[in-house]
Simulated scan of single mutants.
Amino acid sequence: MLYQNILLIDDDPDDIDLLKVAIACIDNKKKCVSAGNRTEALKALHSNQLPDIIILDLALPGVIGSELLGLIKNSSLTAKIPVVLYSSHNKELMEEIAKPFIADHYISKPNSFQQLVDSLKKIF
């Protein structure tokens, strides 16, 4: 199945836990690794096991999410890894913030757990 190794980049442990549970509801064989800041994210991206997909929160402390997206998309090592922007912003605002590094997918933080699962199902 597509996207078995997932990197979750978010500084909020509750959001990480929610994403992990939602992903497990879709397929409990998917492996999720989390990074809470830029340093952890870059370390994970330079490990031996590259993710199949990245879910990136745009609001990370000390770094603009679009800057990290740019680092991912400008690296020959990680440029082809799909990135899902995950934010409380709507898709249009996420697209504006992320210019010129277009993400592959956008998920606005949903109002319900089921909405999150449904959004992730569309991607997976």
Rank of each mutant, 00 (worst) to 15 (best):
I23D: 07
D118V: 04
V117H: 05
V21L: 00
E67N: 15
M94K: 11
S34D: 14
K91H: 10
S112A: 12
I54H: 04
K99H: 10
P13R: 05
V117D: 07
L8E: 01
P100Q: 15
C32M: 01
N74Q: 14
V33G: 03
Q49P: 05
V84T: 00
S88T: 09
L2S: 10
D15R: 01
K80Q: 13
L19M: 02
D57Q: 09
A79N: 13
I55V: 05
I55T: 04
A79R: 10
N28L: 05
Q114R: 12
Q4W: 06
S47Y: 00
L69V: 10
C25I: 02
T39L: 11
D17H: 14
E67W: 13
S87T: 13
L45E: 00
P82L: 09
R38S: 08
L69K: 10
I16M: 01
L69G: 08
K29W: 07
V83R: 11
E92I: 09
A35M: 04
P82M: 14
A24L: 04
S112V: 14
S88W: 12
F113D: 07
L71A: 11
Y106A: 04
P61M: 06
V33I: 12
L93F: 10
P110S: 09
D10R: 06
K31L: 10
V83I: 09
D14G: 06
Y86N: 05
D10L: 14
V117C: 02
